Simulated assay, not measured.
Amino acid sequence: MFRTLWPLAMLAAVLAASTTLSTALARAHEIVGNRSFPATLAIDDPGVNDEVSLPTVSISKTGDVPSFKQLDVSGEFAKRITEDFGVSFAPTWSRLYAPGGPNLTGARGFQNLETTFKYRLFKSPEHEFVMSAGLEIEWGGSGAQSVGAERFTVYTPTIYFGKGFGDLPTSMNWARPFAITGQFGYAIPGVSKTTSGTLDLDTGEMAIDTEFNPRVFNWGATLQYSMPYLKSAVVDLGLPDFVNRLIPIVEASLQTPVSNTATSGTVTTGTINPGIIYAGNTYQVAIEAVIPVNRQSGTGVGVIAQLHFFLDDIFPNTLGRPIFANNISTGRPNFGH
Score class of each variant (00 low, 15 high):
Arg27Cys: 02
His29Glu: 13
Asn34Thr: 08
Arg35Phe: 05
Ile43Asn: 06
Asp44Leu: 07
Gly47Phe: 08
Ile59His: 08
Ile59Gln: 05
Phe68Asp: 00
Ala78Trp: 03
Ala78His: 02
Thr82Leu: 09
Asn103His: 10
Thr105His: 11
Arg108Val: 07
Gly109His: 09
Tyr119Gln: 09
Phe122Asn: 01
Lys123Val: 13
Ser124Trp: 11
Glu126Asn: 11
Phe129Val: 08
Gly134Ile: 00
Gly140Leu: 09
Ala149Gly: 05
Phe152Tyr: 15
Pro157Cys: 06
Phe161His: 07
Pro169Met: 14
Gln183Glu: 15
Gly185His: 02
Asp200Cys: 09
Asp202Tyr: 13
Gly204Asn: 06
Glu205Asn: 14
Ala207Thr: 15
Ala207Cys: 01
Asp209Gly: 06
Arg215Pro: 01
Ser226Gln: 05
Ser226Arg: 06
Met227Thr: 01
Leu230Lys: 06
Asp236Val: 12
Gly238Ile: 03
Leu239Gln: 14
Val243Gln: 00
Asn244Tyr: 07
Val250Leu: 05
Glu251Leu: 02
Gln255Asp: 10
Thr256His: 05
Pro257Trp: 00
Asn273Trp: 03
Pro274Leu: 04
Pro274Val: 00
Ile277Val: 13
Ala279Asn: 13
Gly280His: 04
Ala286Ser: 14
Ala289Cys: 02
Gln296Lys: 11
Gly298Asn: 00
Val301Asn: 11
Asp313Met: 06
Pro322Asn: 07
Phe324Thr: 12
Asn326Pro: 04
Thr330His: 13
